[in-house]
Design a protein around this nucleic acid. Structure first.
Lengths: 226, 226
DNA sequence: ACCTGAACACCGTTCAAGT
DNA sequence: ACCTGAACACCGTTCAAGT
């Protein structure tokens, strides 16, 4: 069964203040606070440099308190990755809404949103796709969040096909192809693996649009009509 | 200046035995042995689980000995990543040689070689592209190895254009597009992010060829001639 | 030159104990 | 229920000392 793309959670893009406030012992929602603080720490640093102990200290609890809410450091990381997928899904839906009836435009915009999100928090992307977390049923929330994001992409392709803008063909395969292209570009940009390759004055939006265009049109020359 | 793709080193695909042998104090080439042992440890485990101390123990030296040969754990990791790029370059060159005069076939084969190499040692790919190591001039050997691999791809595109098989257009951009597609597919496969998406009986070779075909042909429907 | 052992400041995780 | 502090087995890294 394919999971339908249901409602898009607003997924509050910001976090409450997590300074150690009034209550000396009981926090309002320590789980969320830890998740949020960890996400922030990830933004400037690596996954390895984000220690559970440091997160606990930032929130103002002892270094063993997180174990009341997460079995593991891994479980915390899985929570962060799930948030990442939810945000991606939300932005893709917004991209679709912004270009009604224009699947190619939707695809370009969705790709750019993907790139932008990734650049805001590269280590989070690493968490979502870097083979760090298990993709099986260990973290159902994570798995479902990932599938919802993929379904968002498939929706664009299905609409493109029904409008006759995209070629007919296996949806899963076409979705995988476009996902691969955008995903690969994103990771190359995030990883900084494109240093001298690109002209200096071209920005990420232009690069993303250029690459998605090339992907949509294909590389092969049209059959000669001679 | 673009660095030309020079000679392909055979880059011995296997390692010498690294059991602690005769010499009690001085090793023949401890640097290489450490690199090799670390690469092997990476194959079954994660980057985090591969500790410098464990590598040293496996080779049979004290846990501080590696510091005679590597400034850092990071420097060791950079050495492993460079080896990965060299192997990729070599396999791409072999893919080109296997399909003379057929750029599309070269591209498909190169893509498959990329996928295959990645699946043999996923954490190594993470090291090569996962934003873990700096891409600047900190590790010149690593940087050059990466550029050589990218040049191998560009070579295919240049030949394809001159034969009229591929569209004309900016080479860097087309190379980036195909690299992104293959790179993204590889990481999705390595990361296990494609669990229920794919039919169970289709193997990686078929998937890779299908995706690269879709990339070469593009997704857009041909302009209607009505 | 090359390697060792002790030492330091960090981890993640467990567990008995406190509120 | 929720949190703490001590304790354990690990890290990476430094440094004086050994061959």
């Amino acid at each position: 069964m394919i999971i339908a793309m249901t409602e898009i959670k607003p997924s509050a893009d910001s976090c409450e203040s997590h300074q150690q406030s009034s209550r000396p012992y009981h926090h309002g929602d320590l789980r969320k606070e830890l998740l949020c603080a960890a996400r922030e720490m990830l933004e400037d640093g690596t996954i390895a440099s984000m220690s559970l102990r440091a997160v606990a200290k930032k929130v103002g609890v002892s270094h063993t308190a997180p174990y009341r809410h997460f079995k593991d450091k891994e479980e915390l990381l899985a929570g962060i990755a799930a948030i990442g997928f939810n945000r991606l899904t939300a932005r893709m839906a917004a991209a679709v809404a912004a270009h009604p009836g224009d699947p190619a435009g939707q695809m370009q915009e969705a790709g750019y949103q993907y790139v932008k999100l990734a650049l805001e928090n590269p280590p989070c992307v690493q968490l979502m796709f870097g083979d760090i977390l298990p993709c099986d049923d260990t973290y159902p929330e994570l798995k479902q969040a990932g599938e919802e994001a993929f379904n968002g992409l498939k929706t664009i392709i299905v609409e493109g096909q029904s409008l006759g803008v995209f070629k007919p063909g296996d949806i899963e395969l076409l979705a995988l192809t476009t996902w691969s292209g955008i995903h690969g570009l994103t990771l190359l940009l995030v990883g900084g693996n494109l240093p001298d390759i690109l002209s200096k004055d071209i920005d990420n939006r232009d690069i993303t649009f250029a690459v998605t265009s090339a992907m949509l049109d294909g590389l092969m020359a049209p059959p000669s009509t001679s």
